[in-house]
Design a protein around this nucleic acid. Sequence first.
DNA 1: TTGAAAGCGCTAACAT
DNA 2: ATGTTAGCGCTTTCAA
Lengths: 330, 330
Amino acid sequence: MKAKRTSLNDIAKALGVSKATVSFVLNDKGDQFNISKNKQELIKAKAKELSYVPNFFAKSLRQGSTKTIGLVLPDISNPFYGELCKTIQQTLFNSGYSTYIINSNDDKEQETTLMRGLIQRCIDGMIIVPSNDIKEIIPVLHETHIPVVFTDRPGDDLTDFVGINNLEETEKIVSAFKNKPKRITAFSPNDIDANTKMRIEGVKTACEKLKIDFEIITLSKDQKDTDKVIQEQIKKGSDSFIALNSRVIFKLISGLKTLNQAIGKDLKLISFDDHESFGYMTPSISALRQPISDLAVHSAERMVARLADDSLPFGKQIILPCEFIERESH
Amino acid sequence: MKAKRTSLNDIAKALGVSKATVSFVLNDKGDQFNISKNKQELIKAKAKELSYVPNFFAKSLRQGSTKTIGLVLPDISNPFYGELCKTIQQTLFNSGYSTYIINSNDDKEQETTLMRGLIQRCIDGMIIVPSNDIKEIIPVLHETHIPVVFTDRPGDDLTDFVGINNLEETEKIVSAFKNKPKRITAFSPNDIDANTKMRIEGVKTACEKLKIDFEIITLSKDQKDTDKVIQEQIKKGSDSFIALNSRVIFKLISGLKTLNQAIGKDLKLISFDDHESFGYMTPSISALRQPISDLAVHSAERMVARLADDSLPFGKQIILPCEFIERESH
DNA sequence: TTGAAAGCGCTAACAT
DNA sequence: ATGTTAGCGCTTTCAA
């Protein structure tokens, strides 16, 4: 900020009027305060001439509200969160709010640091997809008293939550195979979060109910290991695989390809979470799609509602249904 | 902000000292101002007790700098921009800057509105991937005098730019086919931006140089149309397709599938822009990969350099090379 | 119809 | 070694 920008005062001085008058006019309250049309024109013209831009900070400082919502995401390069982010921002924008997005990288340290930054910026509320350990962030939240909505990953009992029922949705997957599986293997990612835990639980529950033999495997980062594990599972009689998220599926496809297994024939495959590429795979990959847009809209709207009425009861859970996308792999 | 948050003054009053003293201590300048260890402890304890959070706005207002960079993106749900965004944010964070991300949806109106919002927030600089029409945003930029870096899509001659040479890179693609193509069809997306134009130019230049027959097709949104167009191109003798971005390729794959054309055999295929799924397709899709992380790091670092030294010459162009990913489809 | 002045929370120059 | 005070740019009450 070398060449200091134009302030209200600059305009006032240039025109020989008071700051107040300028402020009124520029906030469209000119008529309300009976300021002469003539002077209003003059002020507006001068403002444009000096390319005046109001200082948002000074305004917020004075008014005590920023009309800004903080959005904490674990990984913005993940298309799932990308879409969530986009829709939340759009929805909030339509209600007159800006969104301040931060990326925690699923790292507790960064997350708390950045959340503090958010609070310093006097945001009016926070929508958050917490990194794995909620315990770390609850105290940070208590440093302030702004409304909070959790999405995708739940917080504690007192916070609003918008998400899906991972347990039940996974059970749906187990029952979705066209032929009853002889044996199911469910593959979880290396980093198991609360949602993945529920999904694992869902596989167990459903398989026990349906009396299907099953095994849960946590994939390592190494593709060679993955290939080996897949082979073992096939030897053990598994004919149906479930990928517990959309990242895992790529590893399975890769492994199955090198093992020369025909997906959809030798081996049935379903993914928890859809991906824009699944429809174009050979064969196309059947998947359970989360209602990302709805999740986003509900989160944003809950936030706005809470902001408008702070007597709303705490801990509201908004649980949305997933949609099974029938393709060729199951 | 119902229950007003703790301010410096609250702490000062509670302890019977002055605001200044508290400010010094809390900014780790206690020793510098010779404030007794004892009092320092006391102040820090009180601050924690009242869960004091400094008001960033008041601080910025006073100091005239926000240590915040605005980042304008056309579509954050596009993984390309998602990754760009993530790395820029990370790099800026490491240099002590926050990032304020906005999403223009490639819409000029929204873009200018949101950019004004950014300027109101007194950001120190702006990194921007402009929506198609640059003319609209240059005036907005002139309302302020902050440094600006364009990425992915160039601005005018006076602004710094970090990107790739779309023309030359596309020429690389034309020469990358393992066998000399009989005829090439290049497919562009429906919305042709400046980059796509250069890519089209690149196809022309290379094909003329190599004396290869070619045609450029702009795809409509309708998949049926696409299928028809593909069939026509094949009839016209095209044996090699180039997708001018990674979104287009899905349409081509889909069309080729319904037409029962074997990718990589009947028809060679290369994509401008890589995608995380390309390695798992059958056959896997060869692609020219943009150096997204490098793009991000250079943009962020150029910004930081400009902030540190505002005498830097204008209009620096940082052009980075792409990498051709050899897979099965070409 | 307009101006003066207080004050939002903070920092830093200046007193003491 | 610590307190006082002015002022960042803005809104808004009160006074004229």
